[in-house]
Design a protein around this nucleic acid. Structure first.
Lengths: 190, 190
DNA sequence: ATGATTTCTTGACAATCGTCAAGTACAATA
DNA sequence: TATTGTACTTGACGATTGTCAAGAAATCAT
């Protein structure tokens, strides 16, 4: 929970009372390995902030699952379209290994946003950060090969490889598990 | 310009004076066919709002260009990372056919955001909408084949095909121009 | 520890895609 | 209208990938 407070404090000053109000409003939840805590078809009425571990975002396509992203510590998770428009979500969120998230109820968030422009600013900044992350993913999809994205993942987020099965990473890279195996052996032979 | 005012009015009420203030603050710019109005390497100190035509977002990779998105009427354009962190952008924005955009200077925007929480709210909502759009693109990249994305583009954004050369659409779909030709002929043979 | 289940690797083959090259259609310009 | 240049299509070929299948490695539970 302190991680969330610290995140907010990097952008706006908070009094001790404000911190306590925040901490009393939001709920901490521990997640088991492979636990799916939000499924497609639901309407998102919560935001999530990752405080430990790793969360996989995936979509179901026919029989298989396509991984779109891995969220780590210090990131907000929001099924944007569902949360803002109140329609059924297509996203699924699953814990890789044991994780911990802060659950932020939409109504409580909205009350906060309206009450104090300080929180309105935080809402905007958090959304901006999510947008930047999304734009970077799109750029990597468009400009990089699977192998390049694999190498970059290794450098930027190596902890990922401890908890996340390779098949999910393959799916995230947009290739079959077999191809990821071959990419890896190809790299080793240099 | 009225389109921008209308966009804002769908979310917050504006007095006539406020409308005039806004209109006096921001600049309209007409774009020639193929005009690149923002290039990689620059630091983004402006936002753009599309009022006419179509804007292509592309990245330069080695010698060729990779198209990531087409912005249409009623959408904001923001090179997020550059705009927020003040670092060099990797994005390039180019007009397809003749287009028209509203240019929003960052400093003026920030002044507005600070002056009135009404504008802070608009800033957050606009960012949310951009985020939703980004999340949808990512989902389409991850879950759909090039052919599926082509058919969806045809349905959802058919005006695009009037002004945008097929090679850019191919690049957006992630295939070579030749493959897009074959996808098209494959579809016709049904 | 040991067996059982799952995950990862490796090989073979077919399908798909990118590239190169040539030809066709279209558009712009004079 | 003729000419030039650009964009699009089509074919051939090589490279890469997905799929299927089998084997190896790792993980889990008893």
């Amino acid at each position: 929970m302190n991680q969330l407070i610290n995140y907010i404090k990097t952008y706006v000053a908070l009094s001790d009372e404000e911190c306590e109000v925040l901490m009393s409003l939001f709920e901490i939840r521990k997640l088991r390995n492979n636990e799916v805590f939000f499924e497609e078809g639901q309407i998102a009425n919560e935001l999530y902030f990752v405080t430990k571990g790793c969360i996989r975002l995936f979509y179901k396509v026919d029989v298989d699952e396509k991984t779109a992203f891995f969220y780590s510590q210090g990131q907000f998770i929001c099924a944007g379209e569902s949360y803002n428009l109140g329609i059924a979500a297509k996203e699924n969120y699953q814990s890789m290994g044991q994780s911990e998230i802060v659950i932020l109820d939409k109504k409580k968030v909205e009350t906060l946003l309206q009450k104090d422009s300080k929180f309105e600013a935080i809402g905007r900044i958090a959304t901006e950060n999510e947008l930047i992350a999304s734009q970077k993913i799109i750029a990597s999809f468009v400009t990089q090969t699977a192998e390049e994205r694999y190498l970059e993942l290794l450098e930027s987020n190596s902890e990922l490889f401890q908890n996340v099965p390779q098949q999910y990473i393959a799916s995230f890279l947009g290739v079959s598990p077999e191809t990821l195996s071959r990419i890896k052996s190809r790299i080793l032979k240099r």
